[in-house]
């Protein structure tokens, strides 16, 4: 039987899921609770200039891209198979919308990070 191309999407899904499980809650805590309330971190930790500087460093670019892109690929795959299980069988449309959305999001994030002005 024909070999499935699913490993490509499943690997992105798996990587995104692993990342979401490992750092998702920590990110919500830091960006949504700790920094705005000013404990543990200084209140200006996430100021525009700090975030811009973070995104200018090559390591920062990788972290931001990984979080944005992999989270999106994870969500795309999850929504795709969930719709399938619930009986939405417009397979091509669903795939194009889910994976296409994640692809476009990845490209926009990568382009923005690479062409970041000071």
């Amino acid at each position: 039987m024909k070999r499935s191309n699913e490993p490509i999407f499943w690997s992105l899904f798996g990587a995104g899921g692993m990342l979401a499980a490992l750092i998702g809650p920590a990110l919500v805590f830091i960006t949504g609770i700790a920094v705005p309330l000013g404990f543990i971190f200084a209140a200006d930790t996430m100021s525009y200039s700090h975030m811009l500087a973070f995104s200018h460093h090559w390591l920062g670019k990788i972290v931001v891209l990984a979080v944005i892109a992999l989270f999106m690929w994870h969500a795309a795959h999850r929504i795709h198979i969930l719709l399938h299980d619930f009986g939405v069988h417009a397979v091509t449309t669903v795939r194009v919308l889910c994976y296409g959305g994640a692809f476009v999001g990845t490209v926009i994030a990568a382009y923005t990070l690479l062409t970041l002005k000071p």
Binding site: M1, S4, P7, I81, D85
Partner: peptide, 16 residues
């Protein structure tokens, strides 16, 4: 190679 790697094999599962 005859089945496991195919959509009809392990990849058809949606992890319910």
């Amino acid at each position: 190679n005859s089945l496991g790697h195919a959509d009809e094999g392990f990849w058809g599962c949606t992890a319910v």
